[in-house]
């Protein structure tokens, strides 16, 4: 399978504003991420808050610019495009946001929200009403809702509008940034089932950002585990057993909805390091049960272990 999107050494720094007496402090939110997103598949990004997964999603779509590194979409380096060309490119790549309550304009009707992409992209639309109906039924919305405003819709319906808007221009690549995190579980499952069907029917490629391991395991092909802005492990199949101690800790912290599989939680010692002041070695070393002096001094590189499986660890487990 060829890659639709390739990331090469993608890095993004954020800095706190420097003041008269305050030194400028820099944190690296995304650090040297190299990754291939195969065409027609779902790549999951997991990690805890602050690990850089949302920043990565924004970098991939160039909603924010990278400090260094590149994003290649279908053999085009996005960094070389002029703003106008980038705007044209965006019809191929869209985003579904975490919070449907703030991602759609409260003063636009659903109709106007769904047709706006055509105006922005200056794409003629001969039969707007037919397209509107088609889009709404694609995401399971009753077309009668076209004249409604967002406040008249439930959270799940709003997220369906967000998905329909992302699909309006027939993109081939979607970044899904925690699309179900603010929804009830019964609605979450509906939305995942919808995204799954759309991916299959339209042959879409997804980058699915989530902190929910049961969703990732169910929904994704390849899984990327991030910690403190770095990729620590790439699993070619979502159900593969992780070998990085952090990825294992994440798996171990996830409770199965099955009382016969209760687990004794291994409590991680230590605290998450400050992103402004990362240790020189492995960022996880201070909390890692398998850490040695080497881990504290030398940062492990992300290396291929077997086909498609990559790991950044001096002492892979199990």
């Amino acid at each position: 399978m060829s890659a639709l999107v390739s990331l090469l050494g993608l890095t993004r720094d954020f800095s706190t504003g420097s003041g008269f007496l305050k030194a400028r402090r820099v944190m690296r939110a995304v650090d040297d991420v190299t990754l291939d997103i195969p065409r027609g598949s779902v790549t999951g990004v997991v990690g805890e808050s602050g690990c850089g997964k949302s920043t990565l999603g924004r970098l991939v779509l160039r909603l924010i610019s990278a400090s260094s590194g590149s994003v290649t979409y279908d053999d085009t380096d996005l960094g070389t495009l002029s703003p106008g060309a980038m705007r044209k490119m965006r019809r191929n790549m869209q985003m579904v946001f975490q919070d449907p309550y703030s991602a759609i304009d409260p003063r636009y009707t659903i109709r106007r929200t769904l047709l706006e992409p055509y105006q922005v992209q200056r794409t003629p639309l001969p039969d707007a009403e037919a397209r509107l109906q088609e889009l709404m039924s694609m995401v399971g919305l009753n077309p009668d809702l076209a004249a409604s405003y967002p406040h008249q819709l439930s959270g799940g319906q709003k997220q369906r509008v967000g998905i329909a808007r992302a699909l309006a221009l027939n993109p081939s690549f979607l970044v899904l940034d925690e699309p179900t995190a603010s929804l009830d579980v019964s609605i979450q499952a509906q939305i995942i089932a919808l995204l799954e069907g759309l991916q299959r029917d339209l042959g879409l490629t997804y980058l699915f950002i989530s902190h929910d391991l049961s969703l990732v395991r169910y929904f994704c092909d390849q899984v990327v585990v991030m910690y403190m802005g770095r990729v620590v492990e790439v699993l070619p199949k979502a159900r593969d057993t992780p070998h990085h101690p952090y990825a294992q800790a994440l798996t171990n912290s996830h409770f199965e909805p099955d009382p016969t599989r209760r687990k004794q939680v291994q409590i991680l010692k230590g605290e998450i390091p400050s992103p402004f002041n990362l240790p020189p070695g492995c960022a996880f070393a201070a909390r890692c049960p398998a850490a040695t002096p080497l881990c504290h001094s030398d940062r492990p590189a992300l290396e291929s272990a077997s086909s498609g499986h990559q790991i950044a660890c001096h002492h892979p487990q199990g």
């Binding site: 979450q188 089932a193 299959r200 049961s214």
Partner: peptide, 24 residues
């Protein structure tokens, strides 16, 4: 039963997650 079914289990096959129709 539906609420438990909304969380994909460890070895749930693709395309079998349903959710509960409608809203709370």
């Amino acid at each position: 039963a539906s609420l438990i079914g909304c969380i994909p289990s460890r070895d749930q096959a693709e395309g079998t997650l349903l959710g509960i129709p409608g809203t709370v």
